[in-house]
Amino acid sequence: MQVKTFPLGPLETNCYVLSHEGKAVAVDPGGEPTAVIDFLKEEDLTLTHILVTHFHFDHLYGIKALQEATGATVISGSEDVFLLDSEVGQGGMWGFPKVPPFSFTSINEGDHKFMELECKVLATPGHSPGSLSFYFPAAKAVFVGDVLFYRAVGRTDLPGGDFDVLKKAVTEKIFTLPPETVVYSGHGPQSSVNDEQINNPYFSDFQR
């Protein structure tokens, strides 16, 4: 599986395009997806799914345009749907634009397949109630949205956020993955499970 990163939108949300044997999925297209669409055409890739880690506006801006351009199915958790009735999901807060509405299909935690590759969908709430992480064992990669960053964690002061829930989710769902697993976050650089276990101040011996 190949991974291509596109920082999109006003908050430079990492949109990841995962590809395998001519098929692709996109994770969190948070802005105008022209670069993603061009890449799919250049590489002759068929986008089958758009995976959404959570329903915060900065992860949603490009979904409708990418969905219309490719016909891909949008996949998300069900526990975040209420956010689409607020500025946190719809956009409009802090002067940011509104999110174009899109259709989606809810998915449950468990074993799934995308691009014919096994994917373990993990419920990782805390940043938002319905936050999902997508773990591809064969690629040794997990896409965590904003629940975990390089040396940091996601904010928990937005509706449905809970710091204790977030820490539990990361500890039980992410840190139990193989230590070499690459962690692809919603913003900033990638890391690894082992690196964050040792060095992330919210979890390591450096915590105060």
Rank of each mutant, 00 (worst) to 15 (best):
F102H: 10
T73R: 10
G89Q: 04
Q90D: 07
T73Q: 08
G77A: 08
W94Q: 13
G89K: 09
E87C: 08
D80F: 03
N108M: 12
S86C: 12
E116V: 01
F114I: 06
S86I: 08
A69H: 04
T70R: 07
F102N: 11
I107H: 13
A69E: 09
G91M: 03
L84Q: 01
L117N: 10
H112R: 05
T105N: 15
M93T: 12
M115F: 04
F96D: 08
G95A: 10
P97W: 02
F82A: 12
P101D: 05
D80W: 01
V81P: 00
I75N: 13
I107Y: 13
D80T: 02
I107P: 09
S78M: 09
F114W: 12
G89V: 03
F82D: 08
T70H: 07
G77W: 07
E79Q: 04
E79D: 14
P101E: 04
L83D: 00
T73V: 14
D85L: 03
W94A: 14
S106E: 15
P100K: 11
M115I: 06
I75D: 10
G77E: 05
V74Q: 08
N108G: 10
K113M: 07
V99D: 00
I107D: 11
T105Y: 11
S103I: 10
K98Y: 01
T70M: 06
A69D: 03
Q90E: 15
E109N: 09
D111S: 10
S78Q: 12
S78K: 14
E68Y: 00
W94L: 13
G89L: 03
P100Y: 08
A69W: 05
D80M: 03
F82N: 02
D85H: 07
F102I: 08
Q67A: 11
S106K: 10
G92V: 03
E87N: 12
M115S: 02
V81S: 05
M93E: 15
V74K: 03
I107S: 12
M93G: 09
L84E: 02
E68T: 10
F102G: 09
S86W: 09
V99I: 05
L83G: 00
P101L: 03
H112V: 01
L83C: 01
G110A: 04
P97S: 03
M93K: 15
S106V: 13
A72I: 04
V99E: 00
E116P: 02
Q67W: 05
S103D: 14
M93C: 15
D85N: 12
G91I: 00
S78C: 12
P97H: 04
V74S: 05
F104N: 05
G91P: 01
L84M: 10
T73N: 06
K98L: 08
D85I: 02
E109M: 10
A72F: 05
G89R: 02
L83H: 01
F96H: 15
S76N: 11
G92P: 07
V99Q: 02
E109H: 10
E116Q: 11
S106G: 09
E116F: 06
